[in-house]
């Protein structure tokens, strides 16, 4: 029941509103997989990754971006995400669970 609720909330948030992650990524043609792998290569573990991403979403800056120079020139400045902390954390959890490596290697 809780899981279904989270999926519903995440889907709604990702797909609608000005702060929608997916909409923006799709509009700017930024692959969620690519950004995930870039961040993973820098931040490694799950908690480290999530903490760093949360901070970045709230305080996007050139200096704290893990993306390359070309990407930064093209897409910055970003606006801080206006979602509540709780919702943002849930979104980041969804992001990690959807793209994580553990359990997806053979």
């Amino acid at each position: 029941m809780v899981k279904a609720f989270i999926i519903m909330v995440v889907s709604f948030t990702l797909l609608s509103g000005s702060n929608s992650c997916l909409e923006c990524h799709a509009k700017k043609k930024i692959s969620l997989r690519k950004t995930f792998m870039e961040a993973l290569q820098v931040y490694g573990g799950e908690q480290n990754f999530k903490t760093a991403l949360f901070y970045y979403c709230k305080n996007p800056a050139k200096s704290s971006s893990v993306m390359g120079e070309e990407f930064i020139q093209k897409h910055l400045p970003l606006k801080p995400v206006a979602l509540s902390d709780e919702l943002l954390k849930k979104l980041i959890d969804w992001y990690w669970n959807s793209y994580k490596i553990e359990g997806n290697l053979k």
């Binding site: 490694g44 573990g45 480290n48 490596i101 553990e102």
Partner: peptide, 9 residues
């Protein structure tokens, strides 16, 4: 293993 000592594979 990741930096939090969790096994990846």
């Amino acid at each position: 293993y990741d930096l939090e000592y969790q096994e990846i594979f």
